[in-house]
């Protein structure tokens, strides 16, 4: 008969046997609460440290400069610096204002801006491009190649930012997943009223670009701002329901490719609205001015995508 140890009842073996027989469930070992307590303390300490790290003591940036000036005896230099700054500012203002007197009058004929080029644009622009807003005709028809390059600049800038942000592997997104939902109620209420109006106005500016001040770039900027407002107030998940990365790729690349096609056609037919088969229509109507209206819409989509992409890329690291 083997000797039973006095503490057998509480030993692991006895408890295990009882557990097998179904008399007792294995409970947490006694040191677990202690361990948990220690963990909690460590975590609280970590949090305190992080909090301290996150909100550094805000220091007046001028404090160092003031102390330095006081103790190194160069107080007079600061006085001189202030006086000289004001004097220099006044002198530059005086020179500039004096020079205004020699500038040609606003819209006068002797102005070097008014050469035969702008005269030609003003006199023949409406006839040749079919627009009533000469500026749009200028930047999309006469200088279409330039605008084409600008649109590519937007595209390449977004691509470069995406490459850089993908290279820097973010361990966690800037905006946590649960954090962004349920935005501020005031913002949400106002955004519900304003976002449709902003989109409508952006589309109006876009489509009306050849008739009134506006055009692709400004209309696209308005629409991009509307998208940003929407995603800022309702969160990225609800924005992704109608504008996720797939749709973004299709819209952005598709509009640039279509734009390229149109501008290549325009260049092949002599970079002039006259030789193109597409009718110019009657100036002043929405459906007129040949290629300018579709190009405006494509440029606007490109700009809107770029604006939203920059916002989304910098805020959460992806579109």
């Amino acid at each position: 008969m083997s000797r039973i140890r006095s503490n057998y009842d509480s030993s692991f073996r006895a408890r295990f046997r009882r557990y097998i027989r179904g008399e007792e469930e294995l409970k947490d070992v006694d040191y677990m609460p202690l361990f948990k307590k220690q963990m909690d303390e460590e975590r609280a300490e970590d949090e305190r440290a992080t909090e301290h790290y996150l909100v550094p003591p805000i220091k007046d940036p001028m404090e160092d400069a003031r102390l330095y000036a006081e103790y190194s005896g160069i107080k007079w230099f600061r006085r001189l610096y202030q006086v000289m700054a004001v004097l220099l500012c006044v002198a530059i203002c005086a020179v500039l204002i004096y020079n205004i007197a020699f500038m040609p009058g606003f819209g006068s004929e002797e102005s070097p801006m008014n050469n035969e080029v702008s005269e030609r644009y003003l006199s023949q622009g409406e006839e040749e491009t079919g627009v009533t807003n000469i500026v749009t005709g200028l930047i999309i028809s006469y200088r279409g190649f330039d605008t084409f390059g600008e649109t590519h600049v937007l595209f390449i800038a977004t691509i470069a930012v995406m490459i850089l942000l993908k290279l820097m592997k973010q361990e966690k997104p800037v905006v946590a997943e649960g954090e962004e939902e349920g935005g501020d109620i005031i913002l949400t209420t106002i955004a519900r009223v304003l976002v449709p109006l902003i989109f409508l106005f952006g589309f109006y500016v876009l489509v009306n670009g050849h008739l009134s001040p506006g055009g692709g770039f400004s209309g696209g900027a308005v629409m991009g701002a509307g998208l940003i407002l929407y995603s800022a107030s309702f969160g990225f998940t609800s924005t992704a329901k109608f504008f996720n990365e797939k749709i973004y790729d299709i819209v952005k690349v598709g509009s640039l490719l279509l734009y390229s096609l149109l501008i290549v056609y325009n260049l092949f037919t002599g970079a002039n609205g006259i030789a193109s088969v597409i009718p110019l229509g009657k100036a002043g109507e929405i459906l007129s001015a040949g290629l300018i209206l579709p190009i405006n819409i494509l440029v606007g989509l490109e700009v809107a995508c770029t604006m939203y992409a920059f916002y989304a890329l910098f805020r959460k690291g992806a579109i």
Binding site: D184, L187, L194
Partner: peptide, 24 residues
């Protein structure tokens, strides 16, 4: 109308951010 809609809301958001972040 647009400014009176938008400007107070943006001020409110900025103030909200300040209240959350400010240490003093």
């Amino acid at each position: 109308v647009l400014l009176w809609f938008a400007s107070p809301v943006s001020s409110h958001l900025l103030a909200h951010m300040e209240v959350i972040v400010s240490s003093k």
